[in-house]
Amino acid sequence: MSDLKELFREKAELVAAKVTDIKSMDEAFAYAAKYVAEKNPCELLIPSSPDAPQPEFLEEKIMAAPELSDDQYAALAKECEAKGVKLIKSGMRDLMAGIDAGFTICDAGFVETGSIVQQSNGEELRLATMVSEAHIAVLPVSKIFEDSIAAEKLLLELMSGVAYTAVITGPSRTADIERTLAIGAHGPLELHILLLED
C-alpha cells in the first residue's frame, strides 16, 4: 500500500498538485485553516459594482466545506474560527466571483495519473471545487487504485443514479496561447491533496 501511496504522490506532483501526508482528519482541518489564513487574498472575478477598482479582492477569507459530517464540520469550523477564516457549507451561487478554498474528501485516487475522484452530485460541492482558488482534498490512502480501470466497480457505483462525478488531475490549466502552460484557467489555481493514513 505504501508503494501505491508513494507512486501516487510522484504522479500527482508531476501535474503540479501539492501532496502532503496527514495522520488524522484533525490534522487536515488544521492544515486547511492555516493555509487559507496565510494565503493571498482571493481575487474577485466579478466586480462588486460597475465602478469597483480592479483588481478587487475578497475582504475576508472564505472556505467552503459543503459535504462534511456535522462532527467534521464543527471541528473544521473551530480551526477556522481560531485563524479568522469564515467557513460555509452553502450559498455558493452568491459567491461565483470566487472564494479562497473548497474543502472535500475524495472517493478515490488513481496512481497512474495522480488523479482524485470526487462524487459531486451536490451543487454546492461542485461549485466549491470550481470557483475556489485552492481545492483542498483529503484522500484516504485505502482508496488509492492502480488506475481508473481497477476502480471501475467503484466508479459505476458512484454513477448509479443521477450523478455528477469528477476526476481531477492537478489544478486547472491551459496551453491555448502559444502552447505556453498557464495554471488556473477557469478552475482552481492550486490543488492540495492530503494523503490520510487510514
Partner: peptide, 21 residues
C-alpha cells in the same frame, strides 16, 4: 493529443443533477 497522461478534468454527467435555480 498533448502528451498528458490525463486532462485536468474528466467530468462524468449522468442525468439532470441538482440545480438550485
Amino acid at each position: 493529443a498533448t502528451g498528458q497522461a490525463l486532462t485536468s478534468y474528466v467530468t462524468w454527467i449522468g442525468g439532470a443533477n441538482e440545480c438550485a435555480i
